[in-house]
C-alpha cells in the first residue's frame, strides 16, 4: 500500500518540464532527480518526501521520448503518478521500468494538492484520506500486468528467451 502527500499539476505536463534537456547529458537517476519538475515547480524537490504521489491532468508526460522523465520522477522518491491520461511513450516507459502509474480521470480531477492519498496497486483503488473520497483506476491488460510482474520489460524478455531455449 502506497501512502503520501499529493503534488498536483495540470494538463499536458511535458517531459521537457519533468526533466529539462539541459540535464540529459547525464543518465544518472540521482542527478536527474535533483532537477525533477524544476521548470514548473522549482520547490518540488525540496518539499517532497519519499513516497509522495504526483497527480496530473490529461496527456501527462507528452513530448520527448526521454525515459529520463519517469526515471527522474521515480528517483526523486515519488511512489506513483495518477493522471487523467498519459502520453503514450511516457506510459510505456513507466511500465517498462516497473514504475507504477494509474489512469483515473475522476481521481485526477478531484484530488487536490496537499491531500493525503493511499493507493492499492493490486486493486487500483485510490483513497483520498483528506476528503474521504475513493476512486478506482482502470486495470492494466493482462499482457502489461505480465511485464510489471516480471519486474520490467527486459526481465520479461529474458524469461521468454530462456523459456524458448528450455
Amino acid at each position: 500500500m502506497i501512502k503520501g502527500t499529493v503534488f498536483k499539476y495540470g494538463d499536458n505536463v511535458d517531459t521537457d518540464v519533468i526533466i529539462p534537456a539541459r540535464y540529459l547529458n547525464s543518465p544518472s537517476p540521482e542527478e536527474l532527480a535533483r532537477h525533477c519538475m524544476e521548470d514548473i515547480d522549482p520547490e518540488f524537490v525540496h518539499k517532497m518526501h519519499p513516497g509522495d504521489i504526483m497527480v496530473g491532468g490529461a496527456n501527462f508526460g507528452c513530448g520527448s521520448s526521454r525515459e529520463h522523465a519517469p526515471i527522474a520522477i521515480r528517483a526523486s522518491g515519488v511512489s506513483c503518478v495518477i493522471a487523467a491520461s498519459f502520453a503514450r511513450i511516457f506510459y510505456r516507459n513507466a511500465i517498462n521500468i516497473g514504475f507504477p502509474i494509474l489512469e483515473c480521470p475522476e481521481a485526477a480531477e478531484k484530488i487536490k494538492s496537499g491531500d493525503t492519498v493511499t493507493v492499492d496497486l493490486s486493486t487500483g483503488v485510490i483513497s483520498d484520506e483528506t476528503t474521504g473520497e475513493t476512486f478506482k483506476a482502470a486495470a492494466f491488460p493482462e499482457f502489461i500486468q505480465g511485464i510489471i510482474e516480471s519486474g520490467g520489460l527486459l526481465k520479461y524478455i529474458k524469461a521468454k528467451q530462456t523459456g524458448a531455449k528450455d
Binding site: 525515459e67 520490467g152 520489460l153 521468454k160
Partner: peptide, 16 residues
C-alpha cells in the same frame, strides 16, 4: 519508444 524498449528491441528484435 523509450530506452528500455530500445534495449528490448536490440536484444530480441521485437517490441510490444
Amino acid at each position: 519508444i523509450g530506452s528500455t524498449d530500445m534495449a528490448a528491441g536490440m536484444a530480441s528484435g521485437e517490441n510490444w
